[in-house]
Design a protein around this nucleic acid. Structure first.
Lengths: 342, 342
DNA sequence: TGTTCCAATGTAAGCGCTTACATTAGCCGT
DNA sequence: ACGGCTAATGTAAGCGCTTACATTGGAACA
């Protein structure tokens, strides 16, 4: 593999000059510059980013910590974040913990974290939900150039892109109430996930505001997965719970639940109404099309990426950093899965 | 950030000894070893992988070239590949070209490629479909430690994990014929994608074997996307084409097409039968559940990862390398979307 | 007691870049 | 003609590791 020195020798200049024509072209004479560039192309030189990182003590790389690729939620964020970073000449390396939605293995998270640190990323974006605030705290203390995404983390004033999950719950409740539903069931996510518990909270709050109570019987966890949604729905149907509508805390569970209903002869939305969450691609192809609550993932991703890049330029004036806490709001996307009760 | 030298000084040994306790513990006295390890933990030292890579001229990193994260096909492969690599103490960095299924921007592919090279990955797994064999050829010539995944590349004897797309086409045709269908439509993928054209070929071949011809009118491209599937189905329905069954070359298009049918009052499978491809998670939640053709993605991913790791250990005897070409076969997964015609 | 040998450790070069500092050469004004 | 200035280039140290080679101090043996 050709190195900078080879280029220098062929072009008859010093390594410094070659380096400069790549990084600070304005410092080198146009004639030598074009001579060097010609050599670079002709020998097909590609700079060794490893060596460069070492010399610069900066990798121009943002680490991303996620649980898995097999969730449209993560992949959308990853796609947007990485595209955005690329556009700004940053690298991204993503480390996955391999945790499934329901289970949270702190050890795996630690390992993934270590791996990012050992590669000396300039900043880290944390997507993976870290349940124990204490752990999150200690991780961030160890590596302060971190931005936490979509996990409420208010206490400390740390960089943090959040989504108002509680508002999601409220909006779902409001909407169903408007449509005349008062008996409602809810498919929740994994218990330890803050986003799920927040949605639950907002939902219950809003119902309570209207004097309606949600029986525990009407609550069932589906672990954010399709299969979980199917099982949870079955449990709900088998129970004595009474409901005319279901709020599924993500679209996956809604999809699963809908198939269960279909098999059980329950017609959507005539017999039962559905509201999902995330407005995933599949909300548009379910039968009927699923009314869902949208997270502005693209904007959130870009905000996180921007933040991470700023964080990596430590020399930058602290004042230039955006507000450490950026909040995003949910938005209802109305489709055909909710029936208006008279 | 603490460095190896700091650890050495605190422990009162040389840097070599510290390095050895991490990489060749058997070379150092148990007493000093434990002393050093204690220091490492107490100061929270994390080795600088950048410097290590430079010293070793090896990054223990496999590069993966993919088009996007937002496709279950890619994400499944990525998930499996990366988990497997992690388990073997390899890093993975994935570079995405940002190409949508239909469009292939060779420039973006080149850039992504360069980026991997510049980070001196030890091997590259190519998922992204590179249409121009010439380009693929030249890339691999430039960096021979590459393994191509699921793209037929027979001519040269290059490392290559392939899936028998033509067999997929044949199986779909056979199955539909068995069920009594003779008038069939097909939703194809992007034109330039080899996997799509192979499926098409296999399908037509098999029909021809039974003396059945597929009218051009019954063919429509849906670009492998949900939306494309919807549109293509609409086109098909609006045309004068006659068919009792549809082979959608991936599940996404099938899902889209099914919603279009639903809106048009066409009932599945009573009025129209469907066979999809990929056996994605969603095949199990569509209504009706989608009969689909499975690719053994997990096995394929692991094969690719194994290959890449071997390729990276160049010192290894060439003889130890597995057969350069590993082929995988499709498998039909029967569900409820095909009706038997009497 | 004097060799020999080996296990444990240290020394220092080198991986391929960047960049502060040194050097050179051409230009200006006096 | 000469000192001073500037633009262009070169020199070499250093980024944080690994490892070939050198060194040391016993243990083993005659």
């Amino acid at each position: 593999m050709t190195k900078l020195q080879d280029v220098a020798e062929i072009a008859g200049v010093s390594t410094a000059t070659v380096s400069r024509t790549m990084n600070n072209p304005e410092l080198v004479d146009p004639a030598t510059r074009s001579k060097v560039e010609k050599v670079i192309h002709s020998v097909g030189y590609t700079r060794n980013e490893t060596a460069r990182s070492l010399a610069l003590s900066s990798t121009r790389t943002i680490g991303i910590l996620a649980d898995t690729f097999s969730s449209p939620y993560f992949t959308t964020i990853l796609d947007e974040t990485i595209k955005f970073l690329q556009r700004h000449n940053y690298f991204a390396i993503v480390e996955i913990t391999g945790n499934l939605p329901g289970q949270i293995d702190e050890h795996k998270q630690q390992l993934a974290w270590q791996s990012l640190i050992s590669r000396r990323v300039d900043a880290i974006i944390i997507l993976s939900v870290i349940a124990e605030t204490a752990l999150l705290d200690s991780l961030i203390k160890e590596f302060p150039a971190s931005v936490v995404m979509s996990q409420a983390f208010d206490k400390n004033n740390l960089p943090c892109i959040t989504f108002d999950d509680r508002a999601s719950g409220r909006i779902a409740a409001q909407y169903l109430l408007e449509k005349g539903h008062t008996q409602i069931a809810m498919l929740t996510g994994p218990e330890r996930k803050v986003d799920s518990s927040e949605r639950t909270l907002g939902f219950i709050e809003e119902l309570a505001k209207h004097g309606i109570e949600l029986p525990t019987l009407n609550l069932c966890s589906g672990n954010y997965t399709i299969l979980g949604g199917q099982k949870a729905m079955q449990t709900l149907l088998d129970s004595s719970a009474k409901f005319t509508a279901v709020f599924a805390q993500n679209d996956h569970m809604a999809l699963g639940a809908i198939t269960t209903c279909h098999k059980a002869g329950v017609e959507i939305p005539n017999d039962l109404s559905f509201v999902g969450h995330d407005d995933s691609e599949f909300a548009r192809v379910s039968l009927p099309n699923l009314t869902s609550i949208r997270q502005p993932l693209k904007n959130m991703s870009q905000a996180a990426a921007t933040f991470a890049m700023n964080l990596s330029k430590k020399n930058l004036n602290e004042a230039l950093l955006p507000e450490p806490q950026i909040h995003f709001q949910p938005e209802l996307v109305e489709r055909d899965s909710v029936k208006e009760l008279c």
